[in-house]
Design a binder for these strands. Structure first.
Length: 396
DNA sequence: CGTGCCGGGGG
DNA sequence: CCCCCGGCACG
């Protein structure tokens, strides 16, 4: 897994999460060389894992979680980064056992974190964010602020989630998620892992589908997938050859957004939207084969605090169709982004698609689980594929 | 003919 | 609900 982390572009991640002085460092971007992992003991009780990779261009982001702690480095935009990091930390806490877990898993989490930082909200459709949460428009809410604003009664689910993240939960969670049969939320930016399907559905319905009980008929199914952490760690044999270079399209877009400077969108591109990438991350980790694709990570000069992935082939999301036919995950990502607009319920009615009139849409050229994993590894297919339903992992 | 997946059905 | 599968449309 460590290797994967480096390949996918994650380079240096270290995070300590522990009730008190918490520092979350984030480094990403670079073309990983070797991976080194080391563990540090904090003064407190917390342990801090540090995954280190040679990076060519790295940026260290720091984020103080509470009382004054020395910051190795604090960028000018650190205020905004606070928000971002807050979102990311929350995300990570809620979706993967970061705390005190073995380095590999940290890399995973780190991977996500990294992505989280950069993805920003390139897709303007990236409204997927947590508006239910009533994010306070304050220019730079601190973590605690965020916690509070997010945890408003209007969104019980989220509240719960945060609580879990904040409390001892991580440990129990780790155990849980290590067992087979976990369910991971595919919603962009979420990636939450739950053990019960029902719980996952509830999570999705409440958090992502807006809680509106009306038209969430079983749609939850499409936003989560069953995972087993063992599988993820023992990366699937990766039929690498068949997935060519394209790989997933960038999970962000610093390039386009960086120019104006991060301060241009103080509130709107709220920190939360920044966590979107985690979905990308998780898609990656779910399909490790992709890690084999040549991926380059670069940092756009414009905004030093952001990092961006730049897959070798294509760059931005939709705009250009790369010469290579390969699609792989980017498709899923796009799909998720497209469908994650909060108001999708309304638009849906208009669309002829999934109504009753079964009109089969032409076969998408995306690789589906069957092709990707092969019939023999059927257990790695997404649930939908296993049930001969529309693939939810590689949607068209 | 392989594949994706709708519709239907069993437990 | 979860899961499986017949059968059909695509390519």
């Amino acid at each position: 897994m460590a290797a994967v982390g480096s390949r996918t572009g994650l380079n240096t991640i270290s995070m300590g999460t522990d009730g008190q002085d918490e520092l979350v460092y984030m480094q990403c971007c670079g073309q990983g060389g070797g991976v080194g992992v080391q563990k540090k003991l904090n003064a407190g009780a917390g342990t801090e894992w540090t995954a280190n990779v040679n990076a060519q261009q790295t940026h260290l982001l720091s984020f103080p979680r509470s009382s004054g702690v020395d910051l190795p480095y604090r960028s000018p935009e650190s205020v905004e980064m606070d928000e971002i990091m807050a979102a990311m930390v929350l995300t990570s806490l809620s979706c993967s056992p970061v705390v005190q877990s073995p380095p590999q898993r940290d890399l995973l989490a780190g991977d996500m974190e990294c992505c989280g930082g950069e993805l920003s909200d390139s897709g303007s459709s990236g409204y997927w964010s947590w508006d239910h949460g009533n994010v306070s428009p304050a220019p730079s809410p601190s973590v605690t602020e965020m916690d509070r604003s997010l945890g408003q009664p209007t969104d019980e689910g989220l509240h719960m989630e945060l609580d879990q993240a904040a409390c001892e939960e991580p440990e129990a969670r780790r155990c849980k998620s290590l067992t087979r049969g976990a369910y991971r939320c595919l919603w962009p930016g979420c990636g939450k892992v739950l053990t019960s399907r029902v719980g996952m559905k509830r999570h999705i319905r409440i958090l992502h589908l807006g809680g509106g009980s009306e038209q969430s008929h079983r749609e939850e199914d499409f936003y989560y997938t069953e995972v087993s952490s063992e599988d993820e760690e023992t990366a699937p044999p990766s039929p690498a050859p068949s997935f060519s270079s394209g790989a997933w399209t960038s999970c962000s877009s610093t390039q386009s957004q960086s120019t104006p400077g991060p301060q241009d969108a103080p509130v709107q591109s709220s920190p939360l939207s920044q966590s979107a990438p985690s979905s990308v991350w998780q898609i990656h980790t779910e399909h490790l084969y992709q890690a084999c694709a040549p991926i380059q990570v670069t940092v756009s000069p414009g905004s030093p605090t952001f990092c961006s992935w730049t897959p070798s082939g294509d760059v931005q999301q939709k705009p250009q169709i790369p010469a290579s036919r390969s699609r792989s995950v980017s498709v899923g990502e796009q799909w998720l982004q497209r469908n994650s607009a909060p108001t999708r319920s309304q638009t849906m009615s208009a669309s002829p698609s999934r109504g009753h009139c079964s009109f089969r849409k032409g076969r998408g050229e995306a690789k589906k689980c069957r092709k990707v994993y092969g019939v023999e590894r059927r257990d790695q297919w997404c649930t939908a594929c296993r049930w001969k339903k529309a693939c939810q992992r590689f949607p068209d």
